[in-house]
């Protein structure tokens, strides 16, 4: 059983934090992830910086541009994860865009990720059908999870299909938005979360997009297995003087 599946079996109110690899400085990611793990975060999502991140808002775009300028590469990200794995045992998910995987070579990419201790992937622009046709068997054989997004516009029928074909968890996009926008959770969003819960899906769900503080995190936990925080944490890192302090303060604010 994968680390992700084990985690959801044993724990509620999952907190998944997104970090852009190579940001704010090239090698900060190792310390950031170690501190996140120490402060009680449950899943780490490591962003593979891409020049044209279509699903991301200004904060993550900007951090990606900085990281690319810093000289981040996939090879370096794998090395950093290898280093992280020496002390960190919580699940690690890589998030990036399909073109990056294609240029590395998809099969070598998945094999290398497995070798350094990655547990799953979020590749927003990888279509479900292309995944089924080309990669599903490879990932199943490697016991890796492919996580897909669902949105308020995704029909029940399609949610069931995505649920049956993916594993780990479902990434519930909270609203019509790119990452880092909107600040409060509205009634229509709650109705949408309820609709998903009524489907009695195979996979647990994490709510992402617009989760930025204790209030929104708690709402997400009431309506799903937990939440994903990205842009709000990257913003905290932008102004950080000391990584350890920033991480501790940020996570304490969310959890207490």
């Amino acid at each position: 059983m994968s680390r992700i599946k084990k985690l959801f079996k044993s724990k509620k109110n999952i907190l998944n934090i997104y970090v852009t690899a190579g940001f704010p400085n090239l090698n900060d990611t190792i310390e950031i992830v170690q501190e996140l793990a120490n402060s009680g975060v449950d899943i780490i999502e490591i962003g593979m910086p891409f020049s044209d991140p279509l699903a991301d808002g200004p904060t993550i775009q900007n951090s990606s541009q900085v990281a690319i300028k810093n000289g981040i590469t996939l090879e370096l990200i794998f090395k950093q994860i290898e280093e992280i794995r020496k002390t960190v045992s919580i699940p690690i998910v890589m998030m990036g865009y399909y073109n990056q995987v294609l240029q590395y070579g998809a099969t070598p990419f998945f094999e290398k990720a497995k070798a350094v201790g990655v547990d799953g992937f979020i590749i927003p622009d990888l279509p479900l059908e292309i995944y089924q046709e080309n990669y599903q068997t490879i990932l199943q054989n490697l016991d890796l999870d492919m996580i897909f997004l669902i949105t308020p516009q995704t029909t029940d029928e399609r949610i069931r299909l995505i649920d049956s074909e993916s594993s780990g968890f479902l990434y519930v996009v909270s609203s019509y938005a790119i990452t880092g926008s909107k600040s409060d959770i509205q009634q229509n969003q709650l109705d949408y979360f309820e609709r998903i819960n009524k489907l009695a899906l195979k996979n647990p769900t994490l709510i992402g997009f617009g989760i930025s503080n204790k209030k929104t995190f708690d709402t997400a936990c009431k309506n799903a297995s937990g939440a994903i925080i990205g842009s709000a944490f990257i913003k905290a890192l932008e102004n950080s003087q000391n990584i350890k302090t920033t991480v501790n303060e940020f996570i304490t604010d969310i959890k207490n």
Binding site: L54, A55, Y98, P124, D125, L126, P127, E129, I130, F148, L149, I150, T151, Q153, T154, T155, R158, I162, V173, Y176, I178
Partner: peptide, 21 residues
């Protein structure tokens, strides 16, 4: 049918655009 010209084309879009496209 899938939107390909030979090896090229398709719809490599995030789920957020699936409904519209």
């Amino acid at each position: 049918e899938q939107g390909f010209y030979g090896d090229f084309g398709g719809a490599f879009i995030p789920e957020m655009l699936y409904h519209n496209v």
